[in-house]
Design a protein around this nucleic acid. Structure first.
Lengths: 188, 188
DNA sequence: TGACCGATTTGACATTTGTCAAAAAATCAG
DNA sequence: CTGATTTTTTGACAAATGTCAAATCGGTCA
């Protein structure tokens, strides 16, 4: 649980009295490769922390599979849409490598946030980071070419190419597999 | 100040003792049409509440003017990028009609959030709404055609066409003025 | 090894949107 | 009301990406 604690404390420090209450509602999962952590239509109002491994969050939109996020070691991740209960949210989570991770239910998080100011603050900071990421991603989709988005991804997550099939990366970048393939053949 | 209080309480109730402290840090502005509320490179870490009127938040990105948001009556708005101190943030705010609005500095908001749990919670909820909006907008940019985005805007803000020049709307929708014009000539 | 299967690449063509230039329409000042 | 200015529309063409189909690559397994 050390990595989780570290990651949390880095966002916002937690006094002892609420740290224990908080940690007790996280659930640990140790799963193999290609494991479905959450099937589509499952209860998806969870926040995850990936201790080690790779996981993909995705959903279907008119028959097509959309990769919403690819998480790698030591990242928090969630389906924003479903964590804050909105639209489709038929999300699924799937590991791409053997993985160890933690999850917490939205309801538990909110209950503790009401009870403890420091947890509320932690939550606020997490939502804020998420918002900043969301804005960055929107900016990237709106103003950058597929080429530039690909290069940005390589920068942000070197090694992702070796660990994740191109079809998922394409969908995460918001382009077709064919376009991604062409981008790659130009650059290298 | 009634409309502001109502809007705040609707997000999250504020007990009396912190409501007064909170309200005291908001600043009121009554400005004419075409007023520059915030010039580019000004201090932009503010959250606004538009009591009445129309305002546009925009910034420059390689010489081009990008309309980040168009706010109308009774909306909160902010430059997410600059409120949470990130990248360019050379934002400007400009009224398109005579307007009455309130502003609060990020530093004041954060200070009070630290002091009062209910204000922290309010902030968390505001950031959450912002995140949800951001996601919706990203989704819209990524998966919808310019046509669909335009129709969605008409739905969400009927009357916006009469109150805001098309060039601003185009930039807000992420298309050129010419494309918007063509979309409009097809539909009506 | 060799046939097979999924992943990736390539090709031909269509679609959407952007760019630049000019025309038309609307708005404004005097 | 009229000419000047600004806003919006239209046209011709280019660029980026999508779509569909086929070819190729890589690795697996019997």
């Amino acid at each position: 649980m050390d990595l989780l604690i570290q990651a949390l404390e880095k966002i916002s420090p937690l006094p002892d009295e609420c740290r224990d209450a908080f940690l007790s509602v996280w659930q640990y999962h140790d799963v193999p490769k290609d494991h479905t952590l959450l099937r589509e239509n499952g209860i998806g109002d969870q926040l995850f922390f990936l201790e080690k491994g790779v996981a993909r969050i995705y959903y279907h939109k008119n028959d097509k599979e959309i990769t919403e996020w690819i998480a790698m070691d030591r990242q928090f991740f969630l389906s924003i849409t479903s964590f804050f209960e909105r639209t489709p949210s038929h999300l699924a989570i799937h590991t791409l490598e053997p993985s160890q991770l933690y999850s917490i239910r939205q309801a538990d998080f909110l209950r503790l946030a009401d009870q403890f100011h420091p947890i509320e603050k932690l939550l606020r900071k997490m939502v804020t980071s998420s918002l900043i990421l969301s804005q960055q991603r929107m900016d990237s989709i709106q103003f950058e070419s597929a080429q530039q988005r690909y290069e940005r991804l390589l920068d942000a997550s070197p090694g992702i190419i070796q660990r994740v099939p191109l079809s998922y990366i394409a969908s995460f970048l918001g382009v077709t597999l064919e376009t991604l393939s062409r981008i790659r053949s130009h650059r290298h």
